[in-house]
């Protein structure tokens, strides 16, 4: 709905352009979300209720990938430290729980505030640089956050810490039930999808997209990119922090391993292989990535080598068409 007739008219003029998040992407996204919605009863019918747990994990990573897509796909910022925000969110849960605050909403609020602040400070410094500098400096800030949490011996340092129980909602242990928790995570994903689609179609999103496509042009009509890119970076950080809160509750365990740079790399793989700058692609990418991981790790303990090879081959031999190939494979009509 938020897509306008203008964009779809442009789509019609050039149907080959994959980047425009047109009606196709919207329908693809709705189909994906609908499939998620019917998954729990389907899993019960198939006699495999554990599927819901795996699906919860997929949904949470889809939120994280969605947030990265705003930075990477719309903001043209190759951020290699995005997993840090997952960590901020996860540690917000365990730190507040230790202080006796178990409420999911309060924890989410703290996670969003903490992640946004970290994004604001590190983003403001990182955005002074360009190109490979930006990639390396976001990577380094991610590592800085990682080492910060490693040093928190009160919360288990390197080993992390197990949660006593999941967070409470309205004072009740509502999300102890896996299916309820799944639907809450799914609701967050759906809300994030709608919110980000709205944002990228707004005035702000237009400036962001314009800057991605042609930075100098945008400056020549009077837009200084810094503030817009930084704002996108902060929004994405906050949303990813929220995903971290959910992730801690899903695993009932928190450790610095949530926020390694390899995890940041995996998030990039999800977004790029799913199709950057479409939002739907990020969700499809998270699904594809985690399903592939699940399948491969069931086949061989050395699944990383197969996974790495798939990534390398896709980059080398599907030049410019990775997104297209993957959305054909996973995204269906996306």
């Amino acid at each position: 709905m938020s897509e306008t007739t203008l964009t779809s008219a442009a789509d019609a003029a050039s149907p080959a352009r994959p980047r425009l998040a047109g009606r196709g992407a919207l329908i693809g996204g709705i189909v994906l979300l609908a499939l998620f919605a019917v998954l729990p009863p389907a899993a019960t019918a198939m006699g495999d209720p554990f599927l819901v747990v795996t699906a919860t994990r997929i949904v949470i990573f889809a939120i994280a990938a969605l947030s990265l897509d705003l930075v990477l796909g719309y903001g043209a910022m190759v951020s290699f430290g995005h997993a840090a925000f997952l960590g901020f969110g996860a540690y917000a849960v365990v730190i507040l729980a230790a202080a006796g605050i178990d409420d999911l909403l309060l924890q989410s609020l703290a996670a969003i505030a903490g992640s946004a602040l970290f994004a604001l400070v590190t983003g403001a410094i990182s955005l002074r640089t360009k190109g490979v500098y930006f990639i390396m400096i976001t990577l380094a800030f991610g590592q800085m956050a990682y080492f910060f949490f490693v040093s928190l011996s009160a919360f288990g340092g390197d080993d992390g810490r197990t949660l006593q129980h999941r967070s409470t909602l309205f004072g009740a242990p509502l999300i102890e039930n896996d299916v309820t928790f799944y639907y809450i995570a799914l609701a967050v994903l759906a809300a994030a999808f709608v919110l980000l689609r709205t944002v990228v179609a707004s005035r702000f999103g237009r400036v962001l997209r314009g800057t991605r496509d042609n930075r100098v042009r945008m400056q020549a009509i009077g837009f200084a990119p810094f503030g817009y890119q930084l704002t996108a970076y902060v929004i994405a950080g906050a949303l990813c922090g929220l995903a971290g809160v959910l992730l801690a509750n899903q695993t009932e365990f928190v450790s610095p391993a949530f926020m390694t740079w390899q995890r940041s790399g995996e998030l990039i793989v999800m977004v790029v292989l799913g199709g950057m700058g479409t939002l739907t692609g990020a969700i499809a990418g998270a699904v594809g990535f985690l399903v592939l991981e699940e399948v491969l790790s069931g086949l061989t303990e050395h699944w990383h080598i197969v996974f790495g090879a798939i990534i390398v081959l896709l980059v080398l031999y599907t030049r410019g068409g990775i997104a297209g190939l993957f959305s054909r494979l996973f995204g269906g009509r996306a």
């Binding site: 938020s2 306008t4 203008l6 964009t7 709205t198 944002v199 179609a201 707004s202 005035r203 702000f204 999103g205 237009r206 400036v207 009509i221 009077g222 837009f223 503030g227 817009y228 704002t231």
Partner: peptide, 15 residues
């Protein structure tokens, strides 16, 4: 848009 009002508007479609 660059000269008509703030572009930090997030919720209404610009188009």
């Amino acid at each position: 848009q660059a000269r008509s009002g703030s572009s930090f508007r997030f919720l209404t479609p610009a188009a």
